[in-house]
């Protein structure tokens, strides 16, 4: 973070008891907002899971075989604290959620958080590959489609179409052609490097289309802006105008979009990992949900939410570094709402 430290008295913030620079105030405020959001999300998600555990009847039915004696079932209920008053159960459930204790998996008895964390690297690998591919192709396409006239309109059709393609269908079609018919690439697992190709392509299409489309639109807007005309009229070369004036301004909405895409990427990962039998958290979450293994689903929701909010914090800071206007505004946290 290369925020300039300014020392003039006007920039100091007098609201807080400590005298800190306006830049630091903005950054601290931003981080606090995101932390508050993590707290709110964990609380909401945990409350929802608590409600669902109690809505779905006797939880012991989820992991004790049907023929078990009532004594054993009652002992189990005691161990799980299911005989305590509801508010007490709720308070302990929520507070345990905050320290990462989601209970043991109802299927295999290992701590739910460990089950999720063990699968996280595979998902991160896939998501990183997809977001890199999407960003590079999206930006390249937007730059390449800067033509005038009907070519411009024609080149915008492809990203629009790309956004309409369902992820699961694209994956199935790629699998049919390249794995089933041609046999060039493996259709499942993550044992070889080539197994990464089809899942990455599938996961990257939606974000790549969104990036290409948004960047293309914002380039059009920025190119027509007054400050670009001013820059040209004062004799700045075409390259300098693009580098200094067009690119930073046109990139801002795209950076905000990447933050938004983080959330959609998690949903996409559930689909793609299930389709290609990729051993990541998304596939684990789907299997757990179908087996009604709520502790693992709970851990998954909280871990992914923290990841998404963390990425959004990085995006906020990046925007702050690029756009000096944001540093003086009092409401930075609200810029991408």
């Amino acid at each position: 973070m290369a925020l300039r430290q300014r020392s003039s008295d006007d920039d100091r913030c007098s609201i807080t008891p400590f005298r800190i620079s306006a830049d630091a105030y903005v950054v601290i405020r931003l981080i606090l907002t995101r932390i508050m959001q993590i707290v709110a999300t964990i609380w909401l998600a945990s409350s929802a899971v608590f409600l669902m555990i109690h809505l779905s009847g006797d939880p012991t039915q989820g992991f004790l075989p049907p023929g078990v004696s009532p004594e054993i079932r009652d002992q189990m209920r005691d161990e799980l604290g299911l005989n305590d008053p509801v508010w007490q159960q709720y308070a302990s459930f929520i507070s345990r959620g905050f320290i990462g204790d989601f209970g043991d998996s109802w299927r295999d008895g290992q701590p739910a958080l460990n089950a999720v964390l063990a699968r996280l690297p595979a998902t991160l690998q896939l998501a990183t590959a997809a977001i890199l591919l999407a960003t590079i192709t999206g930006i390249a396409y937007a730059l390449a489609s800067q033509r005038r006239g009907w070519m411009h309109t024609a080149l915008q059709i492809l990203p629009s179409l790309g956004q309409a393609v369902p992820t699961f269908w694209l994956g199935a079609m790629l699998m049919m052609v390249f794995a089933v018919k041609l046999g060039w690439l493996p259709s499942s697992g993550n044992r070889s490097a080539s197994a990464l190709i089809l899942p990455t392509l599938t996961l990257a299409l939606q974000p790549a289309s969104s990036i290409a489309r948004l960047l293309s639109t914002s380039m059009d807007d920025v190119v027509a802006a007054d400050f670009v005309r001013t820059a040209r009229s004062k004799g700045l070369g075409s390259n300098a105008v693009t580098r200094r004036h067009i690119a930073p301004n046109a990139l801002l909405p795209t950076i905000a979009l990447v933050g938004l895409q983080a959330s959609f990427l998690v949903g996409g990962a559930v689909v793609v990992e299930s389709l290609f039998a990729w051993p990541g958290v998304g596939r684990l979450a789907l299997q757990s949900a179908i087996a009604r293994d709520l502790p693992v689903v709970h851990a998954f929701v909280v871990v992914t939410a923290i990841g998404v909010i963390g990425i959004n914090l990085l995006v906020d800071l990046l925007q702050l570094a690029i756009d000096p206007r944001l540093r003086s505004l009092p409401q930075v946290g609200a810029v991408n709402v």
């Binding site: 998600a45 959330s263 949903g267 689909v271 929701v301 939410a305 998404v308």
Partner: peptide, 15 residues
Amino acid sequence: LAVPFVTVGLMVTAT
């Protein structure tokens, strides 16, 4: 926005 809709769908189906 921080909680992907698919994960909420998973929770609902699990219940």
